[in-house]
Design a protein around this nucleic acid. Sequence first.
DNA 1: CTATTCACTTGTCAATCGAACAGGCAATAA
DNA 2: TTATTGCCTGTTCGATTGACAAGTGAATAG
Lengths: 195, 195
Amino acid sequence: MRAEQREATREQIVTAALLAISESGFNGVSTRTIAERANVSQGLLTYHFKSKDALWRAAADQLFAIANDSMQEVFSPPASVEPLQQKRNLIRQMVYFSAAHPEFIRFMLEHEKENSDRSRWLVETHLRPMYKKFVHVMGDIPETDLPHALYTFAGASGLIFCAPNECKQLTGVDPGSKAVIKRHADYLVNLMVPE
Amino acid sequence: MRAEQREATREQIVTAALLAISESGFNGVSTRTIAERANVSQGLLTYHFKSKDALWRAAADQLFAIANDSMQEVFSPPASVEPLQQKRNLIRQMVYFSAAHPEFIRFMLEHEKENSDRSRWLVETHLRPMYKKFVHVMGDIPETDLPHALYTFAGASGLIFCAPNECKQLTGVDPGSKAVIKRHADYLVNLMVPE
DNA sequence: CTATTCACTTGTCAATCGAACAGGCAATAA
DNA sequence: TTATTGCCTGTTCGATTGACAAGTGAATAG
């Protein structure tokens, strides 16, 4: 009962940290704000995670655990699925994942400029394994195009969900709506891997 | 001579603010850091711009002045250019602009979650006029697809340049290289508006 | 030449930052 | 039951935050 409560509280803190950091950046959010979001005291963050930096790392771990879980099926598709359909499924799933977790791209953009130690760790620990799976499914497109395809794909999938308020105010289209998410998936799948 | 120096200093501060805010977010960067980047004292920021908020607004003004200047040709193409080629030129130029000014997308992503007052002002003052020009060139694609095309286009154009270190470390491809920029433009133009 | 304006620096303010610490209280162990 | 562990809160610290006021000195005006 103690251990369960401990884990529940830790996850509550990590989730709050992940969302807050994704929204405002590492230096843009205070540990007090994160604590308030998690409904705990600020001192508890120092207790469970020694420093704000370590909390960031725990948030990254949780983020990629969610991402890998969500993308597992399309990253390791059964051989019975045709390669073309594997690609289409991958793109579609990435759109749905980005819609459900816009914090992913936000978090990945945030680490870039701020701290090179955190950045290197994130790429080697979490991003590279994911990239390998991406290449495995997308691998028969020209190798020189792969990086372009990856970032085109990632940006095209997720940007609309990273700026939902802006998008709604600007175009009237609400990226939170299920119909819009499906339409974005359809649009992107047919654009990048037409049947 | 006084007035010229004044304007030069103000622009120096605004540029430093724009880049710093784009990198670390509004709350993620201090006025002292911005001042250091601009080689002026912190008190001078308060002197020229009353508050950090007002400085942010000046940075946004400068950002969109640069963006509109860079995109002017492709937003208002001569009628002699065929519609298909207009679209291709627009996409190509957006890639080159994103490569030269990755702070654009970063800045636009940063405003979203932080402050709704700044967000609304930014959309109505700067983004909507730009969106209208985009629609004018891209306008013959289905209206329901326009928002999807816009954010697909923006994300696909710019994300790779927003994470240059990550991209280089992950894929070995350096988005700062001219050859890579051209390849990304070729890739995206042919993807989104094939001849 | 003298007086004034004004871009700019320095010093200071309360508020807030991340981190550390002592203590309390409920769950566990004995 | 008693003793102990350990999750958690509240307080406090030196440092840093945005904003402000006083002071400096060179360019301008009369």
